[in-house]
Write a protein that binds this DNA or RNA. Structure first.
Lengths: 109, 109
DNA sequence: TATATGTGCAACTATTCGGTTTCGCAAATT
DNA sequence: AATTTGCGAAACCGAATAGTTGCACATATA
């Protein structure tokens, strides 16, 4: 199933899960201990995160270790790139100046 | 009303709106022309974006110009920072090695 | 072999979401 | 003054979402 990564990180619990398993692979039970929900709810979150390839799983006996697929996180960074230019230079402030000029011009006529 | 910025950028139309008004302030009508929805639907998106301060509005007669509040976008970047260390160094691969070692150890006993 | 543990899946529920249509209102235009 | 234009708000609707409970199944452990 195709999943939108931005929709996946929209949920605060899922973002917390991502942070949690970023450093160490963890089992659903271990993850669920950190939240005020059931293991099944966490399992659903993990499924969503897996579907959009933000998370990978590794079976180990009857346990399944979930870990972050860090590469996929770069996609968010990639989307941010188009705005990075804006907040590094000051194009947005320039735009405000232009808007103000336009308004002024309109008032004059 | 308090809004989650991640929930705000979860919707693809809202992300497109953000990109659209990043460079130039635009009116709801002008924005709606770019999408296959009604102006009212766009208006709702703009309300959500405004509520989480991703977008600011400037009234000009009967028109309202919406523009991106670029500063707020940095919050997403800020959240990504914790992972940036991971994809720059190779901690994730190291973690995989540790997991493999653990598995190996378990099989041995 | 019997029991406990770790897990995913299905069914159900309340809530949220994204969209449309209809409306009211203020500002521009005629 | 009458009409057009630009806009937000409200009411409504179907779909998606996040959560729960109950279940089935495989793997450990006794």
């Amino acid at each position: 199933m195709r999943r939108d990564i931005f929709q996946a990180i929209a949920d605060p619990t899922r973002r917390a899960i991502i942070t949690l398993i970023a450093l160490h692979a963890m089992t659903p039970n271990a993850i669920a201990d950190n939240f005020n929900t059931t293991r099944q709810a966490v399992s659903k979150h993990l499924r969503i995160l897996t579907e959009c390839e933000l998370v990978k799983q590794e079976q180990q006996g009857r346990e399944i270790y979930y870990s972050l697929q860090i590469e996929k996180m770069k996609e968010i960074d990639k989307w941010l790139n188009q705005f990075r230019k804006l907040w590094e230079t000051r194009f947005n402030q320039l735009d405000n100046v232009l808007l103000t000029m336009k308004k002024k011009k309109k008032n004059e006529k």
